[in-house]
């Protein structure tokens, strides 16, 4: 079970997250949507302390971290239970695709090179890049890089995978392949928390949609109810806006 309770975060006095409370069951796929600048990315970044919350607790399984008192070892432990997929891929530029996958397995998890390489082979096949393992990120397309980024997170066997707008920086031609990979991953019932603007995709894969506005969770519902019968006026206004522009 993953629980976030009373999470607050401000940047330079401006509150970005206000008292966020959110539970995610194992195997649940939750999609966060909402207008730009409402703290969706910050929420994800606070879950693994890439941004340190001002207050609140983050609990993953039996590990509970109180932001006000979080120690360095606790933060590391939390990060080791999560995987993060970045909007700009953020692949290690000095590592090949394969090494991007094995790096944390060897350095952080202490696996042997042999075992890590076996995992990398499996992952490279799953992300459809079996023949590009020795390529450096600079030689890969945006879509390929993001697939490696997802593969790197998959390899960690994390209890929760966080996706921070994984297709927003991609050229339109590469969005499909990345969404396909995420669909495949969602089918395995990997616990996922996804921030995205891809509404159709959200509707397909989500068990639950969380709508955020101005740093608060405004509405939570299964996708059908959320898209077809939204309750909060802010949700309705947002959905009208995004469907109008399509």
């Amino acid at each position: 079970m993953i629980s976030v309770a009373g999470l607050n975060k401000s940047f330079g006095g401006t509150p970005v997250l206000r008292d966020i409370t959110l539970d995610i069951a194992p195997g649940e796929r939750v999609v966060v949507i909402g207008p730009s600048g409402t703290g969706k990315s910050t929420l994800l970044r606070c879950l693994n302390f890439l941004d340190r919350p001002d207050s609140g607790t983050v609990r993953i399984g039996d590990l509970s971290v109180d932001a006000a008192r979080a120690t360095r070892p606790e933060i590391l432990a939390l990060r080791r239970r999560t995987g993060f997929v970045f909007q700009n891929y953020a692949l290690f530029a000095n590592r090949t695709a394969r090494q991007n996958i094995t790096e944390a397995l060897v350095t952080v998890k202490g696996q042997t090179a042999e075992k890590a390489n076996a995992t990398a082979d499996r992952i490279l096949a799953e992300i459809g890049l079996a023949d590009r393992g020795d390529s450096y990120p600079s030689a890969l397309s945006g879509g390929q890089q993001q697939r490696v980024g997802i593969g790197r997170a998959m390899a960690l066997d994390a209890e929760l995978l966080l996706f921070d707008e994984p297709t927003s920086a991609l050229d339109p031609e590469w969005v499909g392949e990345v969404l396909d990979l995420m669909r495949k991953l969602a089918e395995t019932r990997q616990t996922m928390l996804v921030v995205t603007h891809e509404m159709q995709f959200a509707r397909e894969i989500a068990d639950r949609i969380v709508f955020m506005d101005e740093g608060r969770v405004v509405e939570e519902a299964p996708p059908d109810r959320f898209f077809d019968a939204p309750e909060d006026p802010r949700t309705r206004a947002f959905l009208r806006r995004v469907t109008d522009t399509r």
Binding site: N48, L50, F84, F86, Y89, A93, N94, E103, V108
Partner: peptide
């Protein structure tokens, strides 16, 4: 070294030493 490299190293749970040795200093 680009900020994304630091964040990616942090996100996979590296210690500061590992991050410096394996990712930041080589770049």
């Amino acid at each position: 070294v680009d900020r994304s490299q630091w964040e990616a190293a942090e996100a996979v749970g590296m210690t500061r030493g590992q991050m410096m040795r394996r990712i930041i200093l080589p770049q």
